[in-house]
Design a protein around this nucleic acid. Sequence first.
DNA 1: GTCTATAGATGGATAGAC
DNA 2: GTCTATCCATCTATAGAC
Lengths: 168, 168
Amino acid sequence: MATSPKAIQERSGVGQGSMYHHFAGKSELALAAVRRNAAEVRAEAEAELAAPGTAVDRIAGYLHRQRDVLRGCRVGRLAHDPDIVAIPTLREPLEETFEWLQGRLAEVLSEGQARGELRADLDVEATAATIAAVVQGGYVLSRAANAVEPFNRAIEGVLGLLTAGRRS
Amino acid sequence: MATSPKAIQERSGVGQGSMYHHFAGKSELALAAVRRNAAEVRAEAEAELAAPGTAVDRIAGYLHRQRDVLRGCRVGRLAHDPDIVAIPTLREPLEETFEWLQGRLAEVLSEGQARGELRADLDVEATAATIAAVVQGGYVLSRAANAVEPFNRAIEGVLGLLTAGRRS
DNA sequence: GTCTATAGATGGATAGAC
DNA sequence: GTCTATCCATCTATAGAC
């Protein structure tokens, strides 16, 4: 499992014996790790999306701030683990994180529309899903290529599409 | 490993003992599985991208034909496996597949530009990376949500951006 | 509360019968 | 060439000293 007691917690300082004083076992430990990752990712995204500037500025800020590209998203990574998605309790934080992100992106896009920064006929919900997907997919392409370029190109591409025919 | 001898091959009919007559071990077995997946994914994508129609039609055909969304892309899934990306021999087929896909998408987009179906100032390389990323990221969002809607929304969104201001 | 064993389960790999 | 049986490494979890 991506959140294995051995890999994640033993290497976090303490021995595996003492770990079982704090957590009942593998699944409880995984839940704590998943929740922590979800909260961190959410906080980092919000910091960019709540910044001042136009809608496109804030979304560009969010897209450009991603780092550790080859390591992948701390939440998205977990979505590939069958042992996590199979257990509703462990999958829920992932679902909540991405739902929140898409909703937040949709809000920013709507504000941009209201200010005339973006096309009025833009489907904000679908576009928000696209932006979230580009980030997650960019990680996948970059891991496959063992290089950051695919991630960066994908980001440029979606920003280009978003601002096409409209300089904001 | 995602391509474990037990999970993938023992359940493919034969016992694990006889398996070692055909493959030297875990890594050789994984290589065969990775190459097979890569070839299949590539062939399926080419079938859609080589179809008749406008550039947007063919890309829409490619995007809409994705299925088994909750299971994920047979190639993209492997990019999350540390045991695969760490071994160059196993990672190469992934890199080649996504490089080929992005190149092929870029060709289709260029054709669309030449025919006046797409904006002349579209960055075809970046847009191709974006489209590939949306597919891979759509899988991630859908697995996290345990539902196909996020994948479909992300697809709709990128198609909307591609055709915005231009009915093709 | 944290440590060092250590038990039990699982997965990868080999041996040898057929 | 495929099967069963078995070894070995790894990982989860527990026991008990300190």
